[in-house]
Write a protein that binds this DNA or RNA. Structure first.
Lengths: 215, 215
DNA sequence: ACCTGAACACCGTTCAAGT
DNA sequence: ACCTGAACACCGTTCAAGT
């Protein structure tokens, strides 16, 4: 039934993996399936729906590692890793994750894991959705930055202390110049960011309980 | 000289603003300028270069509000607002910000403001670039989520306590269910997120100075 | 129910030619 | 130096027709 659909989505993902999102045409997918372009439409809808289907399938395969006995921050970290790995294995997905809110529909299992981790951390119920959105924004953003090239090498350090074109002085760049030329370990940076976010969550919990005591 | 180029980039931005990125074709831009499609190429390069030029121009216009006497967190907040406003006024830009590392080249003034704010906050020089990337990832991600629909309404709360398709239980969703149906004030959420990030920065500074005392 | 083939209205980009 | 016009190799999607 949805068998052919699954085959088509798989073919589309393979095309995107191998040749990029720009080469993903209905015609290319059809050729890979061994069928005429028009034969795709009854199964996956038009191209926009095909893209939705692709990220849906991808997120559905994102297995949430249970292990509910592990500490909340380990579980959170594991979910973050899984997401980033997904963006690394399928760069075309990173940009799509922002535009298709279908995200939530299929990633609902992973989002539930994050809710549970935040609850275990002591985040009040009312704040859990916001923190999930915040962490999700950062994690998806990090994956998209890597995949898309926002963390471009070298481009960050304008040679010298002023912007070449405008001649405007750049005192901030000057002060941290020595740290702009170092090669960045993106795995380590992601870890450091997650550490800071974990501490942020702990601090939010602590602030809340302090307020409760004095209130 | 670059006069015509500027005119073309302006026309391209107008087309994208009015009719979306999907309707941005070389032909549409050319028509708006009152010229043949091929006349664009010497001035802005091919379509990929045109897109680079568009976000370059946009980011160049992002005026960094100086006011260097204001507290560091106010300045940081103002930069964050400016960026989000940009994504709101030009939704097509949000997705492009991840893929084009040209970002940094033109936004270098704003990045310098953020460096200075972080330095004033007491962040050690070596950590400033990482925190800037982290904040930038979140801010651009937030703008992209809004523009692209990742923060989709309603889709977040699977009706009931289980995923309809798989039948898997969703205990996290169940516990926070009442907070998933409330209408979100995205301005307030952005403010709350920035507050938490500010506290995160303060905590990082405090942790560092404590370590220095005991070391 | 599922697929094909021809056709339509678009693309980005090339090339040779015009002034 | 700057632009045009015709052409090429693509797109997504329609429609009527085939089995």
């Amino acid at each position: 039934m949805g068998d052919r659909r699954e085959e088509i989505l798989g073919a589309a993902m393979a095309v995107a993996d191998e040749r990029g999102l720009g080469a993903l045409s209905m015609r290319a997918v059809a050729e890979r399936v061994g069928v005429t372009p028009m034969a795709l439409y009854p199964h996956v809808g038009d191209k926009s729906a095909l893209l939705d289907g692709m990220i849906g399938k991808l997120l559905g395969e994102l297995s949430a590692p249970l292990d509910r006995d592990a500490p909340w921050d380990d579980r959170l970290r594991r979910s973050a890793y899984a997401f980033r790995a997904l963006g690394r294995d399928h760069p075309w997905a990173a940009s799509l994750l922002f535009s298709r809110s279908a995200v939530s529909a299929e990633a609902v299992g992973t989002i539930d894991e994050i809710y549970l981790a935040l609850l275990d951390a002591g985040v009040p119920d009312s704040e859990v959705p916001r923190f999930e959105r915040m962490l999700g924004t950062f994690i998806v953003g990090y994956a998209a930055s890597e995949a898309g090239g926002r963390f471009g090498a070298g481009a960050r350090n304008p040679r010298g202390r002023r912007d070449e074109e405008s001649g405007k002085p750049l005192p901030g760049h000057t002060r941290v110049a020595e740290w702009l030329d170092v090669e960045v370990d993106w795995d380590a940076e992601f870890d450091a960011d997650l550490d800071d976010l974990r501490r942020m969550i702990e601090a939010a919990v602590a602030a809340r309980s302090t307020r409760a005591e004095h209130g």
